[in-house]
Amino acid sequence: MQLDATDRHILRLLQEDASRPNAALADAVGVSPGACWRRIERLEGAGVIKGREVRIDPRALGFEVQVFLRVTLDKTAPNAFDAFIAEARRIPYVQSIETLLGRVDIRMDVIARDLTHYQQIYQERILALPHIADIEALMLVSELKNTGALAI
Results as ranks from 00 to 15, higher is better:
87 E>M: 05
70 R>G: 14
132 I>C: 04
132 I>W: 08
126 I>T: 09
10 I>G: 00
87 E>A: 15
111 I>R: 06
122 Y>P: 10
2 Q>H: 15
87 E>L: 10
16 E>Y: 06
147 T>N: 06
149 A>P: 00
6 T>Y: 07
84 F>C: 02
3 L>G: 05
113 R>N: 08
94 V>K: 11
63 F>A: 03
122 Y>S: 13
36 C>T: 03
35 A>R: 01
56 I>H: 11
109 D>P: 00
115 L>Y: 14
124 E>D: 11
92 P>Y: 10
91 I>T: 10
81 F>T: 09
98 E>P: 00
115 L>K: 14
144 L>D: 11
39 R>A: 04
61 L>C: 14
114 D>V: 07
14 L>W: 00
7 D>H: 10
18 A>E: 03
57 D>L: 06
1 M>T: 07
138 L>S: 15
4 D>H: 07
33 P>H: 11
40 I>P: 04
119 Q>G: 13
146 N>R: 12
22 N>R: 14
121 I>K: 02
148 G>K: 13
35 A>M: 11
76 T>K: 08
25 L>K: 01
59 R>A: 09
70 R>T: 05
95 Q>I: 08
21 P>V: 09
99 T>V: 05
111 I>T: 15
10 I>S: 00
40 I>M: 07
127 L>P: 12
72 T>A: 14
88 A>C: 01
28 A>F: 03
11 L>C: 00
33 P>D: 05
152 I>N: 10
31 V>P: 03
43 L>D: 01
19 S>F: 03
118 Y>H: 15
93 Y>R: 11
68 F>Y: 06
128 A>R: 08
73 L>A: 10
115 L>Q: 12
79 N>G: 12
8 R>L: 02
31 V>Q: 13
9 H>Q: 12
36 C>I: 10
55 R>P: 03
17 D>W: 01
127 L>A: 10
147 T>M: 05
42 R>T: 02
42 R>C: 00
39 R>N: 04
92 P>G: 02
109 D>R: 05
80 A>T: 02
42 R>H: 05
67 V>F: 01
22 N>Y: 10
123 Q>D: 12
98 E>W: 12
145 K>R: 12
17 D>I: 04
56 I>R: 08
11 L>Q: 03
134 D>E: 14
48 V>W: 06
44 E>Q: 11
149 A>N: 09
10 I>H: 00
63 F>Y: 13
83 A>K: 13
130 P>E: 00
77 A>E: 10
112 A>K: 00
57 D>Q: 09
32 S>Q: 06
135 I>L: 08
25 L>H: 01
92 P>N: 01
13 L>K: 02
130 P>M: 05
67 V>S: 02
97 I>Y: 04
111 I>G: 04
38 R>N: 04
116 T>A: 15
84 F>M: 09
14 L>I: 00
112 A>Y: 07
81 F>E: 13
